[in-house]
Design a protein around this nucleic acid. Structure first.
Lengths: 340, 340
DNA sequence: CATTGGCACTCGGATTCATTGAGTGCCAGA
DNA sequence: TCTGGCACTCAATGAATCCGAGTGCCAATG
């Protein structure tokens, strides 16, 4: 028995099963692929593959389907990168070029990814932790209320309204604006936070109270939004194509899609845009989603992974194609962030 | 034949069908309700109701199910307002009290509505057209770029970055800020737009260019966001409970949920918070959603309908309970907007 | 005249049973 | 090591049957 052919058989099984969604038998295998051997030989290989846990039969007298372990081997060693078509590349470029701001980029990406892969797409909004503060504006609203507007290098704008113990006069406000900006502009969020918390000490004792209130709101805006990271979801209609295990598989999926925390955990740690992470079935963190796989990667300017994007779909999916699409979108988005 | 009893029969049919999800026959009807007549009599009534188009049989020798027309009659004349339980009232109050800003109110409402009705909930973000301008801030970002921050009476904040032909000096900026605020503060968005477009004429001919650029951005921010109204969606996992017509009904639903324009059309015109609109099956604007009903109502401060919220579910739903929940949430949200 | 009990009739859904065929494992032979 | 042959398994398919909930109609009744 040739080891190499055994792997070829596994590859053929995965490919056939993904495209037909039906258990594949030895006969149809030799018909559809040039394996150069008889069905009986393939059967021997299949028996061995099953022994090793790469494939399994749903019931005796049926063809084989890949196990999670089988998909894993396929993804790691058997699949070739499937280049996108020119049309697809153009579609990506033209759709993303038109974006007007950061949020728009994210929303377009999610739609794009869903269309390309025909799966449910998830795009995390860029994390703020790595970005820097571009400007901080303090706007008095009257009645001792202040609007804080935080503008970040990624283009994101955060705002908070805070209530002060008393209405500060115009001069104090201007002074505050200057000093706050001097403290945070150009700094990374983490550093900005660190410098902010000690800022009140530089003020007159009488002014420390109000300043502390402002600082607290700012620190909250910065760190709060770092943990409570937002995600965009698209292509949920593709769930309807899930196939057989409909209500068993779709229910937990719909629930997961409502919980952004769950989605973030699904996407996992942001990796470099050139590395695509594939998590197959049980490898994921949720037992209820054992029938789904995640294909994800990081993205961000300058090859630095600011956030994660990816897709979720049935374990039985076209991994090479999906991985290519995910990687391509991540690269394009990264490039756009580079320019912005 | 007593006309009144016929209606009682229809009511009983609707109630039973909604709770059991199965066609209801004459015998089980008299068992479960105190109609005081025999099955044979009920059969006569049912024949009449079918003749008039209020009920139908899926196939001969089966029980009856209500038609859209039957549900309509039920909703209009037969259903009683089902008061919420004390626990539900408390849940609404406590969940909504904790909201920190407008967006948070909307997001909490959508979750609340989904939980109460166990349907897919949709809440439109309050329309800006009726709200007034509270403050307008102009922040120079350097490199001839300006940040415009628009704060509205509803608490919503819109921002735009505009690029000017040249960097204005500090004095000009301050002057601009003052004059812009004098023009728009306190005005409704529509009026603010109207006054803005003629504003450049008040400036020196040389300054009109930059001012016009700013005005254009502001007008865009105001009117743009009026048409491109946003909606929040929640409780999609409830789609999994849709029942039988799963993939026929769920597919178009998932697609609709991705298209906010479609959702807005589904919700329809905002009505007064005290009026709950019910659109049953074919009464809605989309043929593909003929198996779904919409229960919606307007909400907003001071009984003025700023936006719409509601739920979408199968025609076979608990209308009285759903209507009560929708109305209750709309009232609570309106009250909160009143205070804000 | 509305109501009721009786009765024949319908027909979808469940049950059973036989058939089919794709697919397997195993073995002897090339 | 591969192959053809062969007996075996078992899900899926379809025909035949049964069951019963539910109906419509009618004659009898208060």
């Amino acid at each position: 028995m040739v080891e190499e052919r055994k792997l070829a058989v596994l590859r053929a099984i995965v490919e056939d099963y993904v495209s037909t969604q039906e258990p594949v038998g030895s006969k149809s295998l030799v018909e559809r692929h040039q394996l150069g051997v008889s069905p009986a030989t393939v059967r021997n290989d299949m028996a061995a593959l099953e022994e090793e846990g790469f494939i399994t039969q749903p019931h005796t007298s049926a063809g084989r389907i890949p196990t999670d372990k089988g998909y894993r081997l396929f993804v790691d060693r058997l699949s070739q990168v499937k280049p996108l078509t020119a049309a697809e590349r153009r579609a990506i470029a033209s759709l993303l070029e038109g974006a007007i701001d950061l949020d728009d980029v994210v929303q377009r990406s999610v739609r794009l990814l869903a269309q390309l892969t025909r799966q449910v797409a998830i795009v995390q909004y860029p994390t703020l932790s790595r970005s820097t503060v571009r400007h901080l504006e303090v706007v008095p609203l009257g009645h001792a209320r202040m609007l804080l507007v935080l503008i970040l290098s990624t283009g994101r704008v955060e705002q908070r309204v805070v209530e002060l113990p008393s209405e500060p006069d115009e001069e104090r406000t201007a002074d505050l604006r200057t000093r706050l900006n001097r403290t945070v502009v150009g700094e990374r969020l983490v550093d900005a936070c660190a410098r902010l918390v000690v800022l009140p000490e530089e003020f007159e004792p009488g002014d420390r109270g109000p300043v502390a209130v402002l600082v607290a709101a700012l620190v909250e805006a910065m760190s709060d939004h770092r943990s409570d990271e937002r995600v965009a979801v698209g292509g949920t209609a593709n769930l309807a194509r899930f196939g057989d295990g409909f209500d068993t598989a779709i229910r937990p999926m719909l629930e997961a899609l409502e919980e952004h925390v769950v989605l973030l955990k699904l996407l996992g740690e942001a990796t470099s845009p050139s590395t695509v992470t594939v998590r197959i079935g049980h490898e994921g963190p949720y037992e209820e989603l054992a029938a789904t796989s995640v294909v994800a990667t990081g993205y961000g300017p300058g090859d630095e992974a600011l956030a994660t994007l990816g897709i979720v779909g049935p374990t039985r999916m076209d991994y090479p194609g999906t991985m290519a699409a995910v990687r391509a979108v991540a690269r394009y988005v990264s490039r756009i962030l580079d320019e912005g």
